[in-house]
Simulated scan of single mutants.
Amino acid sequence: MGYLKRNRAKDHDSVFFWETAACFLNHELPKIRKKSTNTVTAYRISLNICIDYLEDVKGIQREKICFCDLKKENLKDFLVWMGQEKKWSPKTCNLRMTAVRSLLSFAAEECMDITYLFAASKTIRSLNVPGREIEYFEDDQLSGILEAPGKEKRSERRNRMLLILGYDAAMRVGELIDLNVENIHLDAEIPYVRILGKGEKYRSVPLMGKTVEHLRKYLYEFHGDISDPSAPLFYAVTHGRIHSLSDDCIQKVLKKYTEKCRVNGIHMPANVHFHMLRKTRAMNLYQEGCPLSYIQQMLGHENISTTSGFYAFVTLNTLAEAIGKANPDRKNTEKSWKKAETAKILYRL
């Protein structure tokens, strides 16, 4: 009797559920696993959506929700509900489920009574995510964008510099926003930028010669004697106060110049976002034969599979060239498997 009471205590204990979930979000993820603020926020949203589902669809009172309510049957129904009722993409649905599984994994480490729930959750298959080609700029499009900012206005010169650096160092928008003057090392033997990436992890990315030249001019104009190394590298001034640029501001900068390119007759993708500069840099390096492990380090991907999954594919031009080299002249050629001697070799048990 005592064993049954102990076995039911945690998986049916609502207090344990809420305390464990709070510890997972407020302590485990940010302090132990060093997850970024954005990641923690995404997990928090996902778990709250699951809790809302249990209350609104399954009829379980919020304050009485326990880990046993995250049983396999409910989670499978939750996955179907997200796809069919909410019309969320398979990728979004899978990310929501990842947050739930992570909570169950953490709870199972804290208490064996939750182990069976975590084990059951791992047997739920994720939704198939349709693959799609990487969005990136072609050479003429990239050149047009980087040349689009004018040189007369100060803001235009700033915008050109952030586009050049964003591309050259393959940076995320958030990483560009967080850059300070002290993160730029132009006098090192190999000039580089020190980037604070996901998971509060730093990485160093070498800068190309032309980018270094642009940066020296930019620093001289926008930061003078660099009296404050902690000042944001790219900034705006509002009411006399210097502040970092926002995500929206940087996205608008790119869209402004892609629209200018369209007006000038340069074809541009329909939906443009700053992350495409990062993908373009990685794609260009890949096409030039740079090893994926090097690209992984530059991009700050924790797992090589992330890099290969995004960038390890051949473009149409690359494929056409390879086929052309393999079979440069198709005239007067006969398919080898139609030859009698070849057929005898192929069709043999």
Rank of each mutant, 00 (worst) to 15 (best):
A21S: 06
A270V: 13
G197L: 05
F137P: 13
A120T: 02
N26Q: 11
D225V: 13
K217Q: 14
T115E: 13
G224M: 03
R6C: 07
K338Q: 13
A343K: 03
C249V: 04
Q141I: 05
S308T: 10
R216W: 00
H12P: 02
E182K: 05
K31L: 14
M208H: 09
K35R: 13
E302F: 11
P130L: 03
Y136V: 09
L245R: 12
L165R: 01
E288S: 08
K34N: 12
Q141G: 04
R8D: 14
L292E: 02
C23A: 14
A282P: 07
D52L: 07
M161N: 06
D140F: 10
V40E: 10
N271R: 11
E110K: 00
F106A: 04
L165F: 02
T315V: 02
Q84W: 14
C290A: 11
P232F: 01
Y53A: 00
L103I: 06
I32T: 00
E147W: 05
D69P: 05
R278D: 03
T342W: 06
E259L: 15
L254K: 15
N183M: 07
E213Y: 13
A99R: 01
R154Q: 15
G144W: 06
R154C: 09
K279I: 08
G289Q: 09
L316K: 09
V314N: 00
H185P: 09
L215M: 06
L277G: 08
S121H: 01
D178Y: 07
A42F: 02
Y294C: 03
G324A: 05
N183Y: 06
L319M: 14
V40N: 09
L25N: 04
V237K: 00
M1P: 10
A22H: 05
L162A: 08
W81F: 12
K260D: 00
F274L: 07
L142P: 13
K201D: 07
L25C: 05
L233W: 01
C23M: 08
Y220R: 13
R44G: 11
A282S: 03
L319W: 07
I32C: 04
G309I: 06
K210Q: 11
V80G: 04
H301N: 03
A188Y: 12
D77L: 13
A9M: 09
T37P: 11
I114P: 07
L165T: 05
R6V: 15
K217E: 15
K122G: 05
A282K: 04
R6A: 13
A119F: 13
I124T: 01
P90N: 12
K34D: 11
S204T: 14
K64E: 06
L254A: 12
I226A: 00
Y3P: 06
D228S: 00
V57I: 10
R154A: 09
T318A: 15
S126A: 09
V314F: 01
I45A: 09
T258I: 10
R203W: 06
R241L: 15
K5R: 14
I124F: 02
C66K: 05
V263F: 09
F17V: 02
C93S: 08
K217R: 14
P232N: 00
S143F: 15
A320W: 12
L163I: 15
D178P: 08
A108E: 02
I65C: 01
K325T: 08
F67A: 04
G131W: 09
K86T: 09
R281T: 05
